[in-house]
Every structure is written in structure tokens, then in C-alpha cells.
Amino acid sequence: MFKVQIDSKTYIQTLEKRHAHELYQLINGSRVSIGEWLAFPTKTKHVEDSEKFIENSLKRFTNGNGYWAGIWHEGKLAGSIGFLYIDWTAKKTEIGYWLGAAAVGRGIATIAVKQFNEPAFNELNLKKIEINVASHNTKSRAIPERLGFQHEGTIRNYEYLNGEYLDREVYGMLREEWRTGNESVACNEV
């Protein structure tokens, strides 16, 4: 598969079945913080659930319909990032990401999202990247805003999670808006 070194402490690598235990442990140890904004922790009850997730992601990768990768920081799995799908007709994708509780606030997700722009625009030749974020998740909203994504609107009552309806903010970046190398995003930025 692939591995991309982002800086001396951080790299992104395709999730493989051998990562299932480490992925499950990260989700299990951060169940509350991740589950505040995303539904998948409640569905991840055993290592086998992580194995199945990785297996499905690799199938999607093989079929050209997105994939998930792990984000490693200082030698430990810190989170995950992926192309949720690839719409080849519209030439767009959506980037999803999450971090374990210990990795939040270090700029790790920001540099990972920035890194994912390059293959979306250059290798896959897509025209647009979207990021959807829970409206009240200010830390996650700061990532597309910091990277120059445009706020395109709010999807009201997007999902029902933890006993309440959550709205989603939609951010987008068009190929012509993308700036490579014009901004320096370090791993310690918040």
C-alpha cells in the first residue's frame, strides 16, 4: 500500500489488517471524545469490527471508491483520515478524519488533511474536496477554515447522535483554490 512521511514525527499509511488491534485500542481508549461527534465508536465493540472496517476500506481502495489511512505520530497510531467516497462523475470527494483523545490540539489533523489535498487534486485529478463537520465541533471546524476551505452551508439535523440532532457544516475547496506550498502548517499549530 502506501506510506507518506509528513514530518519527522508524523506519517500517514494505508490501514491494513495488521493494524486492527492498534486501531481498536485507539478507538476504545477515546470512545467518549470521538463518540461526541461521530457514530462509529458505538459500532466498534470488538477487534473484529476494526478488522471488518479495514477490510471494507481496502476493497473500496481497490475499487477506486475511497479508503482510510492511519495517522501515526511519534510511533503511535493517533487517528485516521480518508476519502469517504470518490464521485468520478462530479470529480469530487469528501475527506473525513478523527483523532484519539491524546492527539487532539497538536495540529496533527491539520497537516494530515493538507497532505490529502495533494493526491486528490494531482493524482486523482479531482475538481473538489468537501469536509463535513458537526456544527459545534469548533476544533474540527478550525481545520478546513485554517486550510482555506470555503464554508458552503449548513445541513440542519444531519444526524441523530447521543440523543440529539446535530447540524453539519459543509466546507469545500475547488482545485483552482488549492495552494500548494504557500502556507506552512506545522504539527504543533492549534
Rank of each mutant, 00 (worst) to 15 (best):
M1P: 11
S8F: 05
K9C: 12
K9L: 13
I12E: 02
E16H: 05
R18T: 13
A20S: 15
E22D: 14
Q25H: 12
Q25K: 14
S30F: 01
I34M: 06
E36A: 09
W37P: 05
L38D: 08
L38T: 06
A39S: 15
A39N: 12
F40Q: 02
K43G: 10
K45W: 05
K52N: 13
N56T: 00
R60H: 12
Y67H: 11
I71L: 06
W72M: 09
H73N: 13
G75D: 08
L77V: 02
S80C: 14
G82W: 00
L84S: 13
W88E: 12
K91S: 11
E94F: 07
G96I: 03
L99Q: 00
A103S: 14
G105N: 00
G105W: 02
G105H: 02
G107A: 07
I108S: 01
A112C: 08
A112Q: 02
V113E: 00
K114D: 11
F116L: 14
A120S: 06
F121N: 04
F121W: 04
N122L: 11
H136D: 13
T138L: 15
K139S: 03
R141P: 08
I143V: 15
P144R: 05
R146D: 07
R146I: 05
G148W: 09
G148H: 10
F149G: 08
I155T: 11
R156S: 10
R156G: 05
Y160F: 15
R168L: 15
M173V: 08
M173W: 07
E177T: 04
W178L: 09
N182E: 15
E183G: 12
S184R: 14
S184G: 12
